[in-house]
Design a protein around this nucleic acid. Structure first.
Length: 279
DNA sequence: ATGACTTACAGGGTAAGA
């Protein structure tokens, strides 16, 4: 089972790239961010023709998230984070797919910093932390995947020199991410590659792709019910190299098949005791 | 270095991204 997260940066202009990637990599579950399209403009026909069921939360021009499931229809469990009465930005969608709760998120960028956009980022992060706590201890297998807009450590960026004022690596931003992880979540990419520089984003200018000057900001977090199933992880860098690519690359994990329930797996199968009524 | 690139909305120039 392969799950991926991909900030497409405009699903309509990126549709050929998205379809090529879906066909080549066949991910089972996909979290998309930055659709930059209203609900009515989501290319559901093309997505279905590629073999995927989908849920989406669109918005004209900006933001927008979607969850795709191969040969399956995701079952929506939440649309928007709790506590967002006045929040009009489409950044959170949650669904059940193949017995897993999948949370697809697009955390605010927060630049320029300081300022109202950074305040909004931190406030949104607080709402995420609160909801993530409930998800973590829900008893279900849960995966939170998306563009977190957080560079967790200096090891997750090619060089901090020109980013020191950036919202993505401010101490407050990193502290929020660490508080989230402290609930017990496994950062899947870092867990699989503890000593390697892994990037998921390379901005369009300054030849950052050509010089591999990237950031690791797209993350996949696993709760304790599913962390033991983590098998492998990676970044589909070839997608970033295609003509007309998004500035992000798809980031993915594979999972081992779910074990049978603990009781069933642990208890040796017993011969059925003869029933009294049989004699 | 309020920059360099790219998308969306609109149908030009501005906002936003990270």
């Amino acid at each position: 089972m392969k799950l991926a997260t991909y900030n497409v940066n405009g699903i309509r202009s990126r549709l050929p790239n998205l379809l090529e990637w879906l066909q080549r990599e066949s991910p089972d579950i996909v979290c998309l961010q930055e659709l930059k399209a209203a609900d009515a403009a989501f290319p559901i026909d093309a997505v279905q023709a590629a073999g995927y069921g989908a849920l989406w939360l669109g918005q004209s021009a900006w933001n927008g998230v979607a969850i795709l499931a191969r040969d399956s229809q995701p079952i929506e469990s939440r649309r928007g984070l709790p506590g967002g009465k006045d929040d009009t930005q489409s950044r959170y969608l949650e669904a059940a797919v193949n017995g897993i709760i999948v949370a697809c998120l697009y955390l605010p960028n927060g630049n320029p910093q300081p300022g109202p956009k950074f305040d909004y980022k931190l406030a949104w992060f607080e709402r995420l932390i609160a909801h993530a706590s409930a998800l973590f201890s829900s008893g279900h297998p849960v995966i939170m995947a998306g563009d977190f807009n957080v560079i967790p450590t200096d090891f997750d960026i090619y060089n901090t020199r020109s980013w020191l004022k950036d919202a993505l690596l401010q101490p407050q931003t990193r502290a929020c991410y660490q508080r989230l992880l402290a609930q017990g979540w496994t950062d899947a990419i870092r867990h699989v590659f503890p000593d390697e520089r892994i990037y998921t984003f390379w901005d369009y200018f300054r030849k950052h792709w050509q010089t591999d000057s990237g950031l690791r900001i797209d993350h996949i977090l696993l709760n304790k019910e599913i962390a033991g199933r983590l098998k492998s992880a990676g970044v589909d860098r070839w997608v970033r190299d295609r003509p007309g690519a998004s500035d992000h690359a798809p980031t993915w994990i594979t999972l081992k098949a779910a074990a049978r329930s603990t009781k069933t797996a642990a208890a040796p199968r017993r011969r059925r005791a003869p029933a009294r009524s049989e004699t």
